[in-house]
Write a protein that binds this DNA or RNA. Structure first.
Lengths: 201, 201
DNA sequence: TGAAGCAGACCGACTGGTCAGTCTAGGATG
DNA sequence: CATCCTAGACTGACCAGTCGGTCTGCTTCA
């Protein structure tokens, strides 16, 4: 029972790993099941033993993709420090993630374009962002309570913060030169923070 | 020669209009050439008379798409007022555009995911953003020169501004509720502006 | 002990549908 | 007679998904 379950997990991982690689390189539509078969080292029969269809693989991959992206964010909430420091850490970690997931970014945009036509995908992405927003909103609320930040709707400010992150990721994806991390550094973070911090008059 | 050219233009427009509608609804891959034929009211022969392939239509559509998006931005540079006002007008116009292009947004994300695998697409989008950045950078430079804004790299600040716009468009695409324009209004603009404006100490 | 039975995991040749693009046989316009 | 079409049948490649079959390990029971 146990080693059987392990095998199942192992095989599913094996298939999703292969699918991730193939889908990233060729996109959902150009990728053939036979590519995934070849990449996974399994057979077509095995592949269809574990997943009923290509769509099922895509959906399973999506779950894994956004769950993975989420982890970094979720862990952050326990960070020490005042709201400003927490946001700084958050942004910094997020930027690092963007660079770390470089190759996987195109997969993200595959999901976005799928989202337009597939409710299931849209809902998954939505859930992901809402959880993200909740975390940031909480931090910002702290900052408002402690008098660090100006009086502002924390949900909206959180949405704005995520927008900045996602926008920068997009820009970097399209034109890495325009957005040289070493040069631009934490500029957007600084702009955002200065934008919401209380001024000392 | 003249009315012939007109007819050519007209037919090409007819085809691209149909393609835009079909691609927006079904995505590049699910959309069939026969769908575009039906939508355009022309025949398959006519379609292939004007465009050699599906890819050629996609590329032509891309040029039109980004050229259209660009116009609004290009016109802005002549706007009156100081840098702050110009940026405010710019952001406001951009947000209006997002809402106006609601149905066409999914097409944009089709292009983004294509960009990962097609240099021609990547270059086109890149060019579009660079022109956009140049405009914003110019305005921000003005603001720095006039002492309105803090000393900052205008190119980087412009990149940050575009990131905010694009990020918000993305968020809205995925979750319009999270980003209710009437509620969130010009918050991101205000945050950005406060972030780069000189403080009166 | 070992033969028989069985189920779950897996193999890969094959099928059947789909669809981009072609082609034929015209017709109109200028 | 060149250009701009119409109508739509057709071809050929491509590929998701199927299906008959194999292999391995476990259980049963004589």
């Amino acid at each position: 029972m146990d080693s059987q379950t392990d095998l199942k997990q192992e095989r599913r991982k094996q298939i999703l790993d292969a699918a991730e690689k193939v889908f990233t390189q060729r996109g959902f539509n150009k990728a053939r099941m036979d590519d995934i078969v070849a990449e996974s080292g399994l057979s077509k029969g095995a592949l269809y033993w574990y997943y009923k269809s290509k769509d099922e693989i895509i959906l399973a991959l999506m779950d894994r993709f956004f769950a993975g992206e989420m982890q970094a964010g979720e862990e952050l909430i326990s960070t020490e420090g005042d709201a400003r420091q927490q946001l700084e850490v958050f942004f910094e970690a997020a930027f690092k993630d963007v660079r770390r997931f470089e190759e996987r970014m195109s997969l993200g945009y595959e999901f976005f374009s799928l989202a337009a036509r597939t409710e299931e995908v849209r809902d998954a992405i939505r859930g992901y962002y809402r959880r993200y927003q909740a975390i940031l909103s909480q931090i910002i609320q702290q900052g408002i309570d402690s008098g660090e930040f100006i009086s502002i709707d924390p949900d909206d400010a959180a949405t704005a913060a995520i927008s900045i992150l996602e926008g920068m990721a997009l820009m970097w994806f399209i034109d890495p030169e325009l957005l040289d991390w070493d040069r631009i550094g934490d500029l957007p973070t600084r702009i955002f923070l200065q934008g919401i911090m209380k001024r000392e008059l």
